[in-house]
């Protein structure tokens, strides 16, 4: 599982204010609030109900009794992009479907993340040579977590969402953008 958590070195961070230098840290209160909000965000990812191909069936199975995505609070699949936090690209993206998917992503309100599920979403999968298939959704959308597999097992999807949680929390702790 590949994750985009590039480590920022200390030199990249903005210069500390005098008060922060006195305290030896930057903005005690704000980091705490950020972390509380991060805690809330990472414990209630609401995915968008959008499946493109066979991987979507594994996504549905993840919500069902045996695997139960609800344990982590992630089972609220919202039909409207305005209520959703996470876009799980589950399946083969064709060039014909690409504009609607990008539009769905743009309709989601900020603090949104994208998970590329399955080899089709990562890089075209078995159809990579086809004229009609997008070779990887990261050509169009900023993907946060890649979940390999054809299809990935439901456990893999759960692991992917937990990895996304770790990634967001790591960014909040560092004080950078998620």
């Amino acid at each position: 599982m590949e994750v985009n958590t590039e480590k920022q070195s200390q030199q990249d961070l903005p210069a500390l204010s005098p008060l922060a230098q006195l305290l030896g840290t930057d903005s005690v209160i704000l980091t705490t609030v950020e972390q509380v909000l991060g805690w809330a965000q990472t414990h209630s990812f609401w995915p968008l109900t959008s499946g493109l191909a066979c991987c979507a069936l594994e996504m549905m199975a993840t919500g069902a009794g045996r695997f139960d995505l609800a344990r982590f609070g992630y089972e609220v699949f919202r039909p409207s992009p305005r209520h959703a936090d996470v876009l799980i690209v589950a399946g083969t993206l064709t060039w014909k479907m690409a504009p609607p998917l990008v539009r769905l992503y743009e309709q989601m309100p900020e603090n949104k993340w994208v998970i590329a599920m399955g080899s089709c979403a990562i890089g075209g999968g078995p159809f990579v040579d086809s004229y009609s298939v997008v070779p990887g959704v990261d050509k169009l959308l900023p993907v946060d977590v890649y979940i390999p597999g054809c299809p990935p097992r439901p456990e893999a999807l759960i692991h992917g969402m937990l990895t996304l949680k770790e990634k967001v929390m790591a960014a909040k702790k560092r004080g950078g953008k998620p």
Partner: peptide, 11 residues
């Protein structure tokens, strides 16, 4: 509680 806080932070 987490859900309500998250909805507060949404755009």
């Amino acid at each position: 509680v987490a859900d309500a806080l998250k909805l507060l932070t949404k755009e």
